[in-house]
Design a protein around this nucleic acid. Structure first.
Length: 816
RNA sequence: GCCGAAGUGGCGGAAUGGUAGACGCGACAGUCUCAAAAACUGUUGGGGGGCAACCCCCGUGUCGGUUCGAAUCCGACCUUCGGCACCA
């Protein structure tokens, strides 16, 4: 009696053997082409759920496939280990973040091992360990010395009740504190920034990247490039040290339609431009704005607000005097924080004008305009009117003419503005890499010397229930001496955004043991850039964007010789369970462990890939997985029970060879396209077919053995344990995972006969099996002579006969 | 509001200009069994006709169009999901 398929026993045994033999250890090898297949590393939340497996199992299949194709494949794994949840655990449960994180890593490593991936654990990277974050700090210093890091005041999320800074993730719903549900406000603090805006233009260039179109579009929108002009409006009032205020506009051609002028409430000239009799009202408005939450301020469909300052600017082209207002819809951080308002041609300005009864003047005539008042803002192009000497020009020409005039007179210039802001990397938290800066009363801002790195997190910090940064109150950490003058000094207590850690982890995988540098330069040259990066689309504009910036900056510093980290990007979809994205906080996670224990990792891997196209994600279904499990079981029986050849039928042999080569072709193509669902369908069809062949026993023993071994090779990336076991049991040398990927023979894969479909007026009327070699004339003649077709064409006029080789004959008839 | 993706049996999905529903789940029927489960075999889009082998009509979110032929291409719309959102 044959042994039963016991995935638990098989998987454990092979995982141990592979580990003992180090078969997945990766060495640099210049004789083979390299392939760096990277999967986004997980955050150390504690448990991997099925969503993580959905990201990791198919990418492991792809990496295994490349490996069998002869590439030297680096497919590493590590842990994104700094971050807020660890600190929250410390506050609520009294566990130190380090302990909480390391315990979680322990468990996640166990889960990852059970998946049977080709991760080389010698290359593991953990971002919260000093040997890693030392280099995160080192990079900070590099950026600092390159002039890419600076300190500035910036608003942070502030909970007035907890008296503490909140990270964006701690602001929940419509702008409330996660802990006490108080509306969150803004508070200005000195913080560290990275000058990512310096790379805005370069970051727009995706031309050499094989990335999904939608991610590129999201990044483009994030950069938000706008071309326009900067124009100076003259200040009427003298004696305030400045004669003009500059605005940015994308529509200089509408300048004759300016009927009022807007400043952000935060604009530095507001107080000087406020007339005494308006001061009280202006102060009150500014105070009101400050009380607004970010969410309220930016909420759409909100009524426009603002106050008149009591002063005026002069339009440089028309010489017209227009009133200055302040309003919160003008953002201080975009453009110049000042706007020339053209209500006739801007929706927001029109709303504002209507609310405050300000004049509206049409200066761009829409096609067919006859001088009536516009009912809504016209933002398109048209003919310029009411624009002095520019009247009559098409607005596109007017744009150019006005820019030229402004530049000639020195009143303005063409310019480009980006929505992208500099990257705020300061976090007022404990569980992150400390920013290696010291403040000295005498020397000012002093970077920690490289030799003193890492600046270690103090293990004895106190975690307060309010969530205030423990570093701030940890005197052993804060108090230090100035590296320059040796006097008492204070350490920076902010830590770095975790996106800093994930901006370079893929470099560290190449040489995690390197002590004297963040990475080994020669190995970086060998492995980088990453050939294929896979992960969730939620990182489209944060992680992926920061990492690109990071690498571009390193390139300019001469630390690496490439300027894009990820040549190809692929986003898998999301696994849904009970109508929602799987997450711990939603309480709808499916743990892989019980399925692995019951049905085996191979079944879980297979089922996840069978759900549908990888990029679409899908709903986890408890019942669906048994289909894969049953199939693996049938494969087991197919291969482990003996084959008995009765007769050898050459036609059957040819048919088996054809089927085999067709399957190789399809499986190879599907993996390349990440179509793992149809890859599995092909494998199933082939195994179903093999079962039929086995029943009839019409092929030779040797051909049967060959077919089985090819089948196992194709199955190996998907079900690595089962394939290895069956490879072993069919007498092949260890290991199947060191075998070359099979190649198909075009000639053998070719069909000999095809089903020719015969249509009349596009409707299917008959089918006939014909040799592939059939000629067009033969096919047409055959189609017209078919009994069933005649019934539809007799008595009609034959107008055309269309032949599509190997597919269809369509007979077109018309009534007589 | 803008940008992007997607709508196909009871369900997941296949087919990206040429046989709609591959493969799998579920359901139904059968084999085995005292019985049940498991396993295996068969049937399974809807409607209609025939004793039958079979045959006909309809059918890929909606409405139009292009084409000999459309799930697939084009136009308008509806729905769902993701992202951005007062950026001058």
């Amino acid at each position: 009696m044959a042994q039963k398929y016991d995935p638990r026993e098989i998987e454990k045994r092979w995982q141990q053997r592979w580990a003992a033999d180090h078969i997945y250890e990766v060495k640099e090898d210049s004789s083979r082409p390299k392939f760096y297949a990277l999967t986004m590393f997980p955050y150390t939340s504690g448990d991997l759920h099925i969503g993580h497996w959905y990201a990791m199992a198919p990418s492991d299949v792809y990496a295994r496939f490349k490996r069998m194709q002869g590439y030297n494949v680096l497919h590493p794994m590590g842990f994104d280990a700094f971050g807020l949840p660890a600190e929250n655990a410390a506050i609520s449960r009294g566990i130190h973040p380090y302990e909480w994180t390391m315990r979680n890593i322990e468990n996640m490593r166990r889960q990852l091992r059970s998946m049977g991936a080709i991760y080389d654990w010698n290359r593991e990277v953990v971002t919260c360990l000093p040997e890693y974050y030392k280099w995160t700090q080192w990079f900070f210093l590099k950026f600092y010395h390159a002039g890419l890091a600076y300190r500035a005041k910036a608003p942070v999320n502030w909970c007035p009740r907890c008296q503490t800074v909140l990270a964006n993730e701690q602001v929940v719903g419509e702008g409330f504190c996660e802990r006490c549900s108080t509306p969150v406000t803004k508070k200005d603090l000195e913080q560290w920034f990275f000058r990512i805006t310096k790379y805005a233009e370069e970051l727009l260039d995706h031309s050499r990247l094989d990335w999904p179109e939608r991610i590129k579009i999201m990044q483009k929108n994030w950069v938000g490039k706008s071309e326009g002009a900067e124009i100076s409006f003259w200040l009427e009032r003298q004696g305030i040290g400045q004669k003009e205020i500059r605005v940015f506009t994308t529509r200089p051609d509408t300048i004759f339609g300016v009927t009022f002028f807007l400043l952000a409430p935060e604009h530095p000239l507001v107080s000087q431009l406020t007339a005494p009799q308006h001061k009280a009202e202006v102060d009150e408005y500014i105070a009101w704005c400050r009380r607004q939450t970010e969410y309220e301020r930016v909420a759409l469909g909100r009524e426009k607000t603002g106050v008149f300052l009591g002063s005026y600017v002069v339009n440089p082209l028309s010489g017209e005097r227009v009133p200055i207002w302040i309003t919160d819809y003008v953002l201080p951080s975009y453009g110049t924080g000042a706007v020339m308002a053209v209500p006739a041609h801007d929706e927001r300005d029109l709303e504002f004008a209507r609310k405050f009864k300000l004049p509206v003047r049409t200066v761009i005539a829409p096609p067919g305009w006859t001088g009536e008042e516009l009912t809504e803002a016209y933002t398109g192009s048209g003919t310029m009117v009411n624009s002095e000497e520019f009247s009559g020009l098409p607005s596109e020409q007017g744009y150019e003419a006005i820019c030229a005039l402004l530049e000639k007179k020195g009143w303005g210039k063409r310019t480009v503005v980006y929505r992208l802001r500099d990257w705020l990397i300061s976090r007022q938290r404990y569980w992150g890499a400390p920013i290696p800066i010291i403040y000295c009363d005498k020397c000012g801002i002093v970077p920690v010397p490289e030799k003193d790195l890492p600046v270690l997190l103090p293990p004895d910090a106190e975690f307060r229930p309010t969530g205030e940064s423990p570093l701030k109150y940890c005197s052993s950490f804060v108090n230090t001496t100035c590296p320059k003058c040796s006097r008492p000094a204070r350490r920076e207590t902010d830590t770095m955004d975790t996106f800093m850690c994930s901006s370079w982890y893929f470099l560290r995988y190449t040489s995690p043991e390197t002590r004297d540098a963040p990475f080994d330069a020669a190995r970086i040259r060998y492995w980088l850039p990453v050939d294929l990066y896979t992960g969730g689309a939620e990182h489209a504009v944060m992680h992926l964007f920061y990492a690109r910036f990071f690498i571009k900056a390193l390139k300019d510093m001469g630390l690496v010789d490439f300027d894009e980290p990820f040549s190809r990007l692929f986003n898998q979809g999301t696994i849904i369970y009970r109508g929602d994205k799987m997450s711990k906080s939603r309480g709808n996670v499916i743990a892989p462990d019980e399925y692995v224990a019951k049905l085996g990792a191979d079944a879980v891997r297979g089922y996840l890939m069978f759900i549908g196209p990888w990029e679409l994600g899908g709903e986890w279904n408890d019942r669906g997985i048994v289909g894969i499990s049953r199939w693996l079981n049938r494969v087991w029986i197919l291969v482990t029970t003996e084959y008995a050849s009765h007769t050898v039928d050459p036609d059957a042999e040819r048919e088996l060879l054809r089927s085999m080569h067709k399957t190789i072709k399809e499986v190879t193509g599907d993996i390349e396209k990440f179509r793992f669902n149809t890859m599995l369908s092909s494998l199933m069809e082939f195994s179903n077919y093999l079962s039929k062949v086995k029943e009839s026993g019409v092929v030779s023993d040797s051909l049967w053995r060959e077919a089985i071994s090819y089948f196992l090779l194709l199955l190996a990336p998907t079900a690595p344990h089962l394939a290895e076991e069956l490879w072993d049991r069919t007498g092949h040398p260890y290991s199947i995972h060191d075998q070359p990927w099979p190649e198909y023979d075009k000639e053998l894969a070719k069909e000999e006969e095809i089903t020719l479909v015969i249509q009349v007026n596009g409707k299917l009327r008959d089918k006939v099996l014909v040799p592939v070699s059939i000629s067009e004339a033969e096919a047409k003649e055959l189609a017209l002579s078919r009994e069933r077709v005649k019934a539809y064409i007799d008595g009609k006029k034959l107008t055309r006969v269309i032949y599509v080789p190997k597919r269809v004959v369509n007979i077109v008839v018309a009534p007589m």
